[in-house]
Design a binder for these strands. Structure first.
Lengths: 162, 162
DNA sequence: ACAATTTAATTAACTTGTTAACCTTATAAC
DNA sequence: GTTATAAGGTTAACAAGTTAATTAAATTGT
């Protein structure tokens, strides 16, 4: 027997108190923030356990990954690329420095800036996790298809301009 | 003069250490989690200041909004609909109860459950904020278009199944 | 009826998100 | 050159995300 999702006998929704036509057509838009959250969670729930095995949060990992790609970045660049706010980034970098995965050197040309680099153990950690990471990417592509991924990405980018 | 986004003289990216063809095609997929984050932030950055004026976080508001729609929900239903994990929800509900916006009654049929309802001030808060909220929805639709919104939503829902 | 298992919600501990204030160094104005 | 202003990063305070452990009540098995 197919599961009853919403027996019409048990209605738990109030009729919208007073809903002029001008306010009705926003149902889709209203659902957008949570839809974005759910989609993201569907992805992250695959990455998180794998990263946790290596004692990384996804944000810590994002920083590691960016430093592997760019070798040296200052905090502002990291914040922009990883989409992490400065106060969070400060804590994350402090954590990674404590664990000897990342080092900082003060910029000589602008002494407000600090330049961050992976240590050798940091690079090793990156290499150690990468294969698992790629495995998950392949699963996602196998499920969703590369065309849909690109379409979705372009819609998301456009929305992000808003 | 168009801004130079990436003068080719200053390359800061390492060549990918060793990148067999099998590992190359994941660039798009790799960007997906952050693209979802950025798109969501583009929306939330409109709602947050407006909610903050009324002393609500977006999560608190989600709970208020759901209780307005459904009049009575238990914590499990709220967690599922608002996509908030139980420990966060416990704190949010405690906060809203302290502010007399929400009340709880213990379910008589299952005394592990608590049923939550908006108080009169809670309903007033909802009504007070609603017009601003709808204004933002309209801006989003004006910018993005309802068709794209529906397309995006269906892609997100499909991805969320993963 | 009783022990074992499951479920709803909470608590604990830690990390991150969010805003505002702050400190230090660069840059701009005069 | 000195003062004002801006920019990079950190600190502080509180809310929320995340995982694991806990408590109390319901359900299952026997």
């Amino acid at each position: 027997m197919p599961p009853l999702k919403r027996p019409s006998a048990m209605r738990d929704t109030k009729p919208p108190a007073s809903n002029p036509a001008s306010e009705l057509p926003h149902e889709a838009t209203k659902a957008m923030p949570i839809a974005l959250l759910r989609a993201r969670e569907a992805l992250m729930s695959r990455f998180r356990p794998m990263l946790a095995e290596h004692d990384f949060t996804s944000q810590q990992w994002r920083v590691i990954r960016l430093l592997n790609e760019h070798s040296t970045l200052d905090a502002a660049q990291l914040a922009e690329k990883a989409f992490i706010l400065p106060p969070s980034l400060t804590r994350i970098l402090a954590n990674l420095e404590t664990r000897d995965l990342v080092t900082r050197v003060q910029s000589s040309s602008d002494r407000r800036r600090y330049l961050f680099t992976l240590t050798t153990p940091g690079e090793e950690a990156f290499r150690k996790i990468s294969p698992d990471r790629i495995k998950v990417y392949k699963e996602i592509e196998a499920y969703f298809g590369r065309d849909k991924i690109n379409l979705l990405l372009s819609l998301l980018d456009e929305l992000a301009q808003f």
